[in-house]
Design a protein around this nucleic acid. Structure first.
Lengths: 226, 226
DNA sequence: TCACCAATTTAGCCTTGTCTAATAATTTTA
DNA sequence: TAAAATTATTAGACAAGGCTAAATTGGTGA
């Protein structure tokens, strides 16, 4: 059984590694909003419990045990986010803090009942994959919309690091996970992107916005059927 | 903002007072499963925050502020219990520990969204009243089945202090909240009670079981309609 | 009324997780 | 390559919330 702080540290390590960053003492301190010296102490403790390996000035790696613990937390976090959005009517940007609390509730039965209740979803409301009970996630080929060439057909599958203001903008344009578009043009001048939706919907997105949208390419011509 | 331990203490005081017991240092220590000396310290802290008044050797009383805090916790606890049973398929006896964790999640919006999602229930799966957002509870005239005279028509509205074994027994007999019965007989020898349900269901309950069932009397003759 | 028993509090200690300040180790840069 | 900058660790302190042991308080029975 891990304490709340131990769980927070494990998850922070996992998130950093997932993003391709190194998980050094300093990086963890920033992410957890505590001092580096506190992180040092906790890393020692977690290494002692066999959850991670710590190589100073190089970074932390999770052991299999640590990885499993992290994935369990990610699973719980994303299941709760799904619940909050799909059942309780929260907006994308309102769920994080609450899910952060709910993910620490300890009950195997609760987690699995919730998953089943939600229909064992494979992706959360932000489009991020939800690990199954064994820690396995559905893989998808995605790319940022900024790297999508003109003429491509695609579907929006995830929103990266959605801040309040970004989500507000997307809401305003009626954009959401799962929507399909054709890329009409990419303007070299400002890297903005023009999209054409199914129903005469025509949109222009700035490079900043496009960079936050992950899309999945669709076979051409089939603009409707999956 | 209260800490988890502060919340636990406040709720323990409230529960004891609710049951008509006095909330002395020792009683609280027993209920919280900590030592009396620890309770003393915490009571001092809570009194300092204006949540309760402490009269040594006499007992603790909650202030209006303390009462409000306690009712908020009770509300959250019972809403979560309702969610767990009605939506996730938990049994009566499986919900307490999980609800104990969930009740500490801090989010006004979560609480109210959950309440709305559940249809603003006035009673939880054990039949206990759920305080509304202002702390008000629906009142009901109830009495233990042991005090119900022969010939009376009644409905089971709550199960007091349901242990695993009691709930298992009730399940086995097909008994649940909301069911209507006529009291056929009360046997002086062992205080057992005989009940007659709508559909030829005939049951005998021991005094021990009957004492745990709270019932609401129904106008005679109307065995069907509320 | 006095002595005892139970309830309560006080005093001092421990653990967890944090902090600050000082020190050490490593990498970067000039 | 040596100084500077960055990163990490250690040492000592503190707050929260628990514990044990000892002292205190209040009620009660002989």
């Amino acid at each position: 059984m891990l304490t709340r702080s131990e769980e927070d540290h494990i998850k922070a390590v996992h998130t950093l590694l997932q993003d391709g960053a190194t998980a050094g003492t300093k990086d963890l301190a920033e992410r957890l909003d505590i001092k580096a010296s506190s992180v040092t102490v906790m890393l020692k403790k977690l290494a002692g419990k066999g959850l991670l390996k710590h190589e100073p000035y190089y970074g932390v790696k999770l052991t299999a045990k640590g990885k499993a613990a992290a994935l369990k937390l990610v699973r719980k976090h994303r299941l709760w986010e799904t619940f909050l959005v799909e059942r309780l009517g929260f907006k994308w940007n309102e769920v994080h803090d609450v899910a952060e609390q709910l993910e620490h509730v300890q009950s195997e039965k609760l987690t699995e009942s919730l998953a089943q209740y939600l229909g064992d979803p494979a992706f959360d409301p932000h489009g991020d994959p939800i690990p199954d009970r064994n820690g396995r996630m559905t893989e998808r080929d995605t790319l940022p919309l900024t790297e999508c060439s003109a003429g491509a057909h695609m579907r929006i599958v995830a929103v990266k690091d959605g801040s309040d203001t970004l989500l507000h903008l997307l809401d305003g344009k009626g954009l959401g996970i799962g929507m399909r578009f054709a890329v009409i043009a990419r303007h070299a001048f400002d890297d903005s992107v023009e999209l054409q939706g199914d129903k005469a919907a025509h949109l222009t997105l700035s490079a900043q916005v496009a960079a936050h949208l992950l899309v999945e390419l669709l076979p051409k011509g089939k603009s409707r059927k999956p």
